[in-house]
Design a protein around this nucleic acid. Structure first.
Lengths: 252, 252
DNA sequence: ATACCTTTTCATCGATAGTGAACGTGCTGG
DNA sequence: CCAGCACGTTCACTATCGATGAAAAGGTAT
């Protein structure tokens, strides 16, 4: 099980460099070598290779990730069925509520943000496209977990554990189970400052024939959601959006 | 100039596989090996490596590009100054005109789409995020070429040539020069079905202190733009959008 | 002109990426 | 129900090729 098979070092290094460039924004061979403790010539050959392949471009002698990654990302995004069916509805949700709205799928045991729409322009703490977060600590993640097969949930918890991010993060298996049961009843998953202090999030699963294809959410400052009426209003909006997306799936 | 330096084969192969997966949507080791004429075990080891790195995920025994590419793409997008300053204005342009609006930068001698907004939902022929097109055959490309240093234009034409895509594509250097001069005068670049039959596009450069940071455009079916009044109206809207973005740059 | 950066090139050597054959498994069709 | 097929996966082997340090080539500021 523990994937002992050989991996290709050069490829790992190449992606390490890509990630280093993501962090550094732009850098030359020396800076990359420094950042990753590689020999200057190794860094150079890798950068040269990636450049020739079109994945980097050079400005003022420094390398940057090129639009090829944007193209790949766009293709990936459009490959998610939930994106094709949900995109417009998520944007509408954001407009209607005036809050940040997200569309999330499960991938490799984590919640991956497939689309994000913000009416307010605020982005503090909210997920950005492609970002992965632990499922047990997010509303969207819990909405998905609540409708995944039990064995898959086991697997996910085993792989990623239940790390704590704030004082409110769920850290025990029992607590998680009872919360998932509640989510199945109410149809709404709540992240009450469990992943980030001050951030509240409400999510609903997108269920088609019993399978969870993703989840939708709105999120914003916990203070603003404090009012129970506002909370109920937003819950309803989220549930409704999920429902509309489900219908979109059916009338493919 | 001709980059004779050694490149790393394993890395090239890895990206070939990524691109193959982009085309195939999802595939197993055998399918990838077939597609790229690799030995099954080589394809397997590469897929395994990319999977371990988190760049692929497995569903029903088939590999797919993962959200990591979406994350990288998002980072790249947000790294373009023109995106940060122009995003909102491009969306407004699309809303106001009811047409598709694009934001483009020059990268490696081609026009790379940094953001695309469509009010209509139509996407036929329009650029998608990250897509690269020849500059001489697109309105956005020509708007940029018109304000690039002459030597850079030479370089670009030398590297990529002036390939023809429709009956209206510019294919001679002189024709291009005179058109660029006209663009500098009018402030508007026109793609009259030069890259794709039936597609018309109007673009304006985003100039800050004489440097072209990118270009904005609207595009749609050539028929709809036929009316000279509509054309003038759209030209004005595009020019105005470019101007607003330029101002956004200045008041950073 | 000098010193100190950088990027780029080169020859060398040991690790490793690619290979084909073999194993295990799940499916399909006879 | 079994045979056969195709797939993913593993393995041992070896030529290849990626990593390396040193040094050349280019650039900039002192």
């Amino acid at each position: 099980m523990a994937g002992t098979t050989k991996t290709i070092g050069a490829v790992e290094r190449a992606f390490d460099i890509v990630e280093a460039l993501e962090r550094l924004e732009s850098a030359g061979a020396s800076a990359v070598a420094e950042e990753l403790s590689l020999s200057k010539s190794t860094a150079y050959t890798h950068l040269h290779t990636l450049h020739e392949q079109g994945y980097l471009h050079k400005t003022d002698g420094e390398y940057r990730l090129s639009g090829q990654f944007l193209r790949l990302g766009t293709t990936v995004q459009q490959g998610y069925p939930v994106y094709r069916h949900g995109r417009a509805h998520v944007e509408e949700l954001a407009d209607r509520t005036g809050e940040r709205a997200n569309l999330v799928v499960e991938e490799r045991g984590k919640g991956t943000c497939v689309h994000a729409a913000n009416a307010s322009g605020r982005t503090d703490g909210a997920m950005i496209r492609g970002e992965r977060r632990h499922m047990h600590a997010t509303a969207t993640g819990k909405a998905l977990l609540a409708h995944l097969p039990a064995e898959r949930v086991d697997e996910i918890v085993e792989t990623h554990g239940l790390p704590s991010f704030t004082d409110h993060t769920i850290t025990s298996r029992e607590e998680l189970e009872s919360e998932l049961a509640e989510i199945r009843e109410t149809g709404i998953a709540i992240d009450a400052e469990e992943s980030i202090d001050g951030l509240r999030c409400l999510a609903a699963p997108i269920l088609v024939e019993g399978t969870a294809y993703g989840s939708v959410s709105v999120s914003g400052p916990a203070r603003e959601f404090a009012d129970p009426e506002r909370d109920a209003e937003l819950s309803e909006a989220v549930r409704k959006a999920a429902n509309v997306i489900e219908l979109d799936f059916v009338f493919e």
